[in-house]
Amino acid sequence: MTTALILIDVQQGFDDPVFGPRNNPAAETNIKTLLDAWAAAGQPLVLVRHDSLVEGSPLHPGTPGSRFKPVLDDAHPDLLFTKTVHSSFHGSVDLHGWLTTRGIERIVLAGIQTNFCVETTARVGGNLGFDVHVALDATYTFNLGDLTADELSKATATNLQGGGFATVSTTAEVLTLLD
């Protein structure tokens, strides 16, 4: 079965101190592991970049922060596009149509931020009928309000798995989908 890896918003702007403390310092290493495995398996890779509409945002188009992190320097995506909202299914490209036209029914998600763009993409993908897998250890987020980034990640995992939107697992578990 063809499985597309969708890497969401792996951008330098998320290193800006404005976002505050993050969790999962191993996320970039796990993203690289997924990227290398997908390339070796010849499976489709999709890179999504968030273009913030807010002037002064670290993710505003044309700023250094809008660039992808170095972990993606060797990436050769089958599809690369931008979005201005949380869901990758609502970007400058019809992702649903692109996947469907290629007969892709299973997607693996990783990237930034766990509880915003990754979770929203997983929910929409699940609602559209895709077999969605989230490599939780290849995502990260930031403290928000009274909740730590780890608490938010745990809530996302619970929402996605418990709500039937996605299978939430580790990078190692996701790699078995390539066998």
Rank of each mutant, 00 (worst) to 15 (best):
L35N: 06
L35Y: 06
L35S: 11
L35D: 11
D36S: 15
D36K: 14
D36H: 10
A37K: 04
A37P: 09
A37V: 06
A37H: 09
A37Q: 10
W38F: 07
W38Y: 04
W38S: 10
A39K: 15
A39C: 07
A39P: 09
A39L: 12
A39G: 14
A39M: 11
A39S: 15
A40W: 02
A40Q: 15
A41D: 10
A41Q: 12
G42E: 12
G42K: 09
G42C: 12
G42H: 12
Q43N: 08
Q43M: 14
Q43H: 11
P44C: 13
P44A: 13
L45C: 06
L45G: 08
L45M: 06
L45R: 10
L45P: 11
L45T: 09
L45V: 13
V46N: 05
V46F: 05
V46D: 09
V46K: 04
L47W: 09
L47Q: 13
L47M: 13
L47C: 11
L47K: 08
V48L: 12
R49Y: 01
R49L: 03
R49K: 13
R49C: 03
R49S: 14
H50G: 01
H50Y: 06
H50V: 00
H50L: 02
D51W: 13
D51P: 04
S52H: 09
S52Q: 07
S52N: 09
S52A: 13
L53M: 13
L53C: 04
L53D: 15
L53A: 14
L53P: 12
L53T: 13
V54R: 14
V54I: 14
V54G: 03
E55M: 04
E55P: 03
E55C: 01
E55D: 15
E55N: 08
E55V: 10
G56C: 08
G56W: 01
G56I: 05
G56E: 10
S57W: 02
S57H: 09
S57F: 02
S57K: 07
S57Y: 04
P58S: 08
P58H: 05
P58N: 07
P58Y: 02
P58M: 08
P58W: 04
L59P: 10
L59T: 06
L59F: 05
H60S: 14
H60Y: 15
H60N: 10
H60K: 12
H60T: 13
P61L: 06
P61E: 09
P61W: 01
P61H: 07
G62L: 01
G62V: 01
G62D: 01
T63H: 00
T63S: 08
T63E: 05
T63R: 02
T63M: 01
P64K: 05
P64A: 08
P64H: 02
P64N: 05
G65R: 00
G65M: 00
G65E: 00
G65V: 00
G65A: 00
G65P: 00
S66G: 01
S66F: 00
R67V: 05
R67H: 07
R67Q: 11
R67C: 05
R67G: 11
R67A: 14
R67P: 01
F68M: 01
F68G: 09
F68C: 02
F68A: 08
K69Y: 04
K69Q: 15
K69E: 13
K69V: 06
P70C: 04
P70K: 03
P70R: 03
P70F: 01
V71G: 13
V71L: 13
V71Y: 08
V71Q: 13
V71I: 15
V71W: 07
